[in-house]
């Protein structure tokens, strides 16, 4: 595997002028991060955090106001760099007068794939993404899920080493979301680098090697999930039934309703609570340990920024 990172951002910032007389507004600020080749990287943030702007800088669609963006060691504006990149935009809009086959054939041409290889790859991708029967259907008749799939197909048509996906699960049903997650894992398994943005944290937690959390244009946390999330148990959910009315344990907030208890306690309070339940003649129906999730980390970073004003 190459030592050159797939993506390197060094102090990257972008400001947009909202009106002629108004001062430029900072959308992305001092973002520095490195995405290793072959990794599955999640770029997380709330709506309007600056994820799409960063992605557009990675593709050369937007020039950074400051800092340096490099993809596979080169500037994104260089077509030779983009030859190794596939991109799926958020809420994709395509040339909808084309049929699915015409559309993929067009994008294959743009990637320099010609002749028999083009036809073979078009057919293979339509088949792989569950669109085999739609080759002659115009994109104007596609549903949102189908558009997302054909968008993925065009992103993969040039067999890119880096796949950049902007909110790839957006608007998909659970089956579609799983398919996209499986596809990303499959791409990583084939040695590809996958960089995707999302505000759905469970998606990222399920499949990512590394993440960066973007809050109001600034990267607040980045690194491997195992490093970012504390492995210790932060909370335990205990449930029990058959308890007498008025059951209580000193120092533990655990109320009983109709003989049933459902309590969230600290890890230290777990054993005393379970012993007390058994001693009172109750039956423990569940003990679930909770560790720090990406969601709690994200909410922590968000509230830290909000507190700072």
């Amino acid at each position: 595997m190459s030592d050159t990172p797939a993506i390197r951002l060094e102090g990257v910032g972008k400001a947009f002028r909202q009106g002629f007389w108004l001062r430029p507004q900072e959308v992305v600020n001092q973002v520095s991060l490195e995405v290793p080749a072959g990794s599955l990287f999640g770029y997380l943030g709330h709506n309007g955090a600056g994820k799409t702007t960063t992605i557009k800088m990675l593709l050369g669609l937007i020039a950074p106001s400051r800092g340096r963006v490099s993809v596979w060691g080169g500037p994104p504006r260089d077509p030779r760099v983009r030859r190794r990149v596939g991109y799926l935009p958020e809420q994709p809009s395509f040339h909808d007068h084309l049929t699915a086959a015409e559309f993929l054939s067009f994008h294959a041409d743009l990637c320099g794939i010609r002749g028999e290889a083009k036809h073979r790859r078009t057919a293979e991708l339509l088949d792989r993404l569950g669109l085999a029967g739609t080759a002659r259907v115009p994109l104007s008749r596609f549903s949102k899920g189908m558009l997302q799939r054909i968008g993925l197909a065009q992103a993969l048509i040039g067999d890119p080493d880096l796949v950049v996906l902007d909110e790839p699960m957006s608007g998909l049903d659970p089956v579609g979301r799983k398919d996209v997650r499986d596809l990303m894992v499959e791409l990583k398994g084939r040695g590809k680098t996958v960089f995707f943005s999302t505000h759905v944290l469970s998606d990222a937690e399920a499949i990512c090697d590394e993440v960066a959390i973007l809050v109001r244009g600034e990267v607040r946390s980045k690194g491997c999930l195992t490093d970012l999330l504390k492995p210790q148990v932060t909370e335990v959910e205990v449930s029990a039934e058959g308890l007498p009315a008025g059951f209580a344990v000193a120092g533990i907030d655990a109320g009983v309703v109709d003989g049933t208890l459902r309590a969230r306690v600290s890890a230290a309070d777990r054993d005393p609570l379970v012993r007390a339940i058994v001693a009172a003649g109750g039956r423990v129906t569940g003990v679930v340990s909770r560790r720090e999730s990406l969601e709690t980390l994200f909410m922590h970073e968000l509230s830290a920024v909000e507190r700072a004003g």
């Binding site: 084309l98 067009f106 320099g112 067999d159």
Partner: peptide, 27 residues
């Protein structure tokens, strides 16, 4: 199922003509 593999290596004239063709179809 594994993903199909293809390799890019085109010339700009093909791209220009392809964009021209899509424009013609759209028009």
């Amino acid at each position: 199922m594994s993903l199909p593999v293809g390799r890019a290596g085109g010339i700009p004239m093909t791209q220009i003509l392809s964009i021209a063709q899509v424009t013609w179809r759209e028009a």
